[in-house]
């Protein structure tokens, strides 16, 4: 294998990058997987309120060992906590917040995203297992900004940012920004606009890993996350 002149972001670094775009006062839902990690990387002093689909508004960090509460779980059924000011709502209200446009940001994982922002993240149609949709379709339509964190390519190196999704859609034309391990890409009416790339990456190399045509923003920046250990808020 040819040594690469660039180093893709880790899962933690992708989550760090997505967290930098969360603004003071934002109400945010974090999807299961890498998005959940973003809660740890909100810059210190910035107040962001996390929503969990099972009726928590003001979700906090993982509990300290020995302080787990069996009645406090997040969307992935992992133990969690409530921050001061947090409260509980029932399921229909939790999804009213999601579907009704009350959340500022929904940060989701994805199998595939298309150039028009179509999202596929709920089923790979594996016939051996029942499908599960959970809150994926709700989360993909309701928030004011729907953003995706995903590996740029599959394990076999095939593009996952495509002209059209091959897996069944979660929602059409919903994704506005993609944080991959190689770049930050905005979905615009004019197509995919690269606003950041990791050091050593070129548009040509990035294009080779991406099916639809990419454009480079004139004011693009180098995507330079801190080492994961330094990024995490104290």
């Amino acid at each position: 294998m040819i040594p690469k002149s660039w180093q893709p972001l880790t899962r933690e670094q992708m989550a760090w990058r997505a967290a930098q775009d969360l603004k003071e006062g934002d109400y945010v839902n974090l999807g299961i997987g890498i998005p959940t990690l973003a809660a740890s990387y909100v810059p210190p002093g910035r107040e962001v309120i996390f929503h969990s689909e099972n009726g928590i508004l003001g979700m906090g960090p993982k509990p300290e060992p020995g302080k787990e509460d069996p009645n406090m779980v997040d969307a992935g059924k992992n133990k969690t906590t409530l921050v001061p000011g947090g409260c509980f709502v029932h399921h229909a209200d939790a999804f009213l917040m999601i579907r009704g446009g009350h959340l500022d940001v929904s940060l989701l994982g994805a199998f595939e995203v298309s150039e028009s922002g179509d999202l596929a993240n709920w089923t790979t149609e594996d016939p051996a297992f029942p499908p599960g949709v959970g809150g994926a379709m709700d989360l993909a339509v309701g928030a004011r900004a729907i953003r995706v964190i995903m590996e740029h390519t599959s394990k076999r190196g095939e593009p996952r940012i495509l002209k059209a999704c091959t897996y069944p859609l979660t929602a059409a034309a919903c994704v506005k920004r993609i944080y991959s391990n190689l770049a930050v890409i905005d979905v615009t009416p004019q197509g995919l606009l690269v606003i950041e790339m990791i050091a050593g990456m070129t548009l040509e190399k990035l294009q080779a890993s991406t099916e639809p045509r990419l454009q480079l923003a004139p004011d693009w920046q180098v995507l330079a996350p801190p080492e994961a250990s330094e990024a995490r808020a104290a």
Partner: peptide
Amino acid sequence: LNAYRAKSLELELVPQGTISE
């Protein structure tokens, strides 16, 4: 999973917010 594979029960999959609503 066993019942699903044995086709002894039916699954109606509904988005979470749609079920509650």
